[in-house]
Amino acid sequence: MTISSPSPQAPILSTRNLSLHFDEGQTRALDGVDIEIVEGEFVAITGPSGCGKSSLLNLIGTLDIPTSGDIHFRSRPYSALGDLSLFRRENIGFIFQSFYLLPTLSALDNVLVPTIGRSGDHEERARALLTRLGLSNRLDHFPGKLSGGERQRVAIARALINDPDLILADEPTGSLDSANAAQVLDLLDCLRREKELTIIMVTHDANVSARADRVIPMRDGKVDAEVAA
């Protein structure tokens, strides 16, 4: 279910009045969020803990279902996509703060996990990606034997294995020291240009968000209009 891009400056993604409520509306994680992300953009969503930035990323990544509102990917509403897991597999790559690598699989096998159930031989591509990310000598290493920076680079390779257009990164440098964090951010920026990716990154770190083309600040489940202005 790959949805092709109509034009470089067209929005790849937009949300309309997006809300996510819990406890029968008592808790409003998101409350009427409208954002628009352009193809190839590197956007940082920032804000204090509990402001709804991760909830927004989860909804964009189809990991959660909104209470109301809709999200459009290249003008097609999510509600019309049908099989969201198929859409997710072919269009979105995830990078998590805790890496979420499977501990009993080697770096190479971890990268191949998203390809299970897909036809074709993906191993060469996985090897090439890991080599591109500087891990050619770590292919057979298990996550427990890799440094934090190396683990996140394996996770980045895994996010790219299905050749997505959109990368969603939730605090990708949150578990890294400053040197590794800078290296990962450099890599993401480089890959974005190389592969014409759109990146939406959640962070509460001002130094990290400074690397983005644009920052969407959030507060109390809404886009913080004052800061955004």
């Binding site: 897991s85 198929l86 597999r89 499977l102 996990v113 998203p114 299970i116 159930g117």
Partner: peptide
């Protein structure tokens, strides 16, 4: 459960998880 969440997030279809 978390591992299954990771697999679903990575685009595994529900039928692949069942399989």
């Amino acid at each position: 459960t978390r591992e299954i969440g990771i697999l679903l997030a990575l685009g595994w279809q529900r039928r692949t998880v069942i399989k």
